[in-house]
């Protein structure tokens, strides 16, 4: 599956990234080369093989439902680029 410049443009929106025209050209070439390399996986027979999501099978992990200290609001806001001491502030979403 060859990756095209328009694929890269679409993916850049999904990834919430933005690239200049020259960056898009460069990325298209680099990603095409990497995708071509990983495409070799399609040749490996995997019928009946269960996907392995984690390296060590850990089954349901339960913890008791106890109230524990959580991050206080001032600490949670401390690294925010913009806040009003109560909430994170973002640019206008509508309009």
């Amino acid at each position: 599956m060859a990756i095209t410049r328009s694929d890269v443009e679409k993916v850049s929106l999904l990834a919430r990234l933005q690239f200049s025209d020259s960056e898009l050209d460069r990325l298209t070439g680099e990603l095409a080369q990497i995708v071509e390399y990983v495409d070799h996986l399609s040749e490996v027979p995997t019928e009946g093989i269960e996907p392995m999501a984690h390296a060590v099978e850990v089954h349901n992990v339960f913890v008791s439902d106890e109230v524990m200290p959580s991050l206080p609001r001032d600490k949670a806001l401390a690294n925010a680029p913009r806040h009003n001491d109560r909430a994170f502030l973002v640019p206008p979403v509508l309009g």
Binding site: L14, L31, M52
Partner: peptide
């Protein structure tokens, strides 16, 4: 950015089975 793009591409509609799921099987 390159890796975010690669991962977003591989997980995007139509490619999940071909890449991520396939890779998880080869991983096993």
């Amino acid at each position: 950015k390159r890796r975010i793009m690669l991962g977003t591409y591989a997980l995007s509609a139509g490619y999940y089975d071909a890449y991520y799921l396939k890779a998880l099987k080869v991983r096993r």
